[in-house]
Amino acid sequence: MPSIFTRIVNGEIPCYKIAEDDNFLAFLDVNPNANGHTLCVPKQEIDKIFDIEDDLYLGLMQFSKRIATALEKTVPCKRIGMAVIGLEVPHAHVHLIPLNEMGEMTFKHKVSLTKEEFETLAKDIQANL
């Protein structure tokens, strides 16, 4: 059965898309640790980050860096944190989280946004790409 991220990549589940290319997709996390929490995923469903073929892995890191740069220009923060956990969804992904305090990286601190806030945020980040 396809992962939820594969279903998002395939357009079966909507997302607040930030960017995509032939190999990767970036979208806002709908259960964010902080305003702007973004996920970068390879379009190819691969369970574990270190099972990704080297060129695709490096491409994911370059793609994530591009998104993080735009995110930092958009969301006021001290820096963009990056995490790869991989336990909750069996599809490799990178979390990019705007940080003002360490608690925002614990995955216990969550914020709520409206649909309109998600849509506006996605457009604002896209404008900084």
Rank of each mutant, 00 (worst) to 15 (best):
M1P: 11
M1T: 10
S3A: 05
I4V: 15
I4F: 03
I4C: 10
I4N: 11
T6G: 10
T6Q: 14
R7L: 14
I8R: 01
V9S: 08
V9T: 10
V9N: 05
N10R: 14
G11K: 12
E12H: 03
E12L: 10
I13N: 13
P14L: 13
P14N: 13
P14R: 13
C15L: 06
I18V: 15
I18K: 06
A19Y: 11
E20D: 14
D21I: 06
D21M: 08
D21C: 08
D21R: 06
N23R: 11
F24T: 03
F24I: 04
F24R: 01
A26N: 08
F27R: 02
F27S: 06
L28P: 08
L28W: 00
L28Q: 05
V30W: 01
N31K: 12
N31H: 14
N31F: 06
N31C: 02
P32N: 10
A34G: 05
A34M: 04
G36L: 09
T38P: 08
C40E: 01
V41R: 07
P42H: 06
K43Q: 15
K43V: 14
Q44A: 15
E45P: 09
I46S: 03
I46E: 08
I46W: 06
I46R: 06
D47I: 13
I49Q: 11
I52N: 10
I52M: 11
E53S: 15
D54I: 08
D54M: 07
D55Y: 03
D55C: 03
G59K: 03
G59N: 09
M61G: 12
Q62F: 12
F63D: 01
F63K: 02
F63V: 02
S64T: 10
A68H: 01
T69Y: 07
A70M: 10
A70Y: 05
A70P: 10
A70E: 07
L71H: 09
K73C: 08
T74G: 04
V75E: 01
P76I: 01
P76A: 06
C77L: 04
R79W: 06
I80E: 03
I80S: 01
I80F: 02
I80K: 01
I80W: 01
G81P: 11
M82Y: 02
V84M: 13
V84E: 02
V84T: 14
I85P: 03
I85Y: 06
L87Y: 09
A92N: 06
A92P: 03
H93S: 02
V94K: 02
H95Q: 09
H95C: 05
P98T: 07
L99W: 02
N100P: 00
E101F: 13
E101M: 11
M102Q: 12
G103L: 03
F107L: 13
F107R: 09
K108C: 09
H109D: 05
H109W: 09
H109A: 08
K110L: 08
K110I: 07
S112L: 00
S112P: 00
T114L: 12
T114D: 10
T114C: 11
K115G: 13
E117G: 12
E117K: 14
F118C: 10
F118W: 04
T120G: 00
L121Y: 00
A122T: 02
K123P: 07
D124P: 02
Q126E: 12
A127N: 14
N128A: 15
L129V: 12
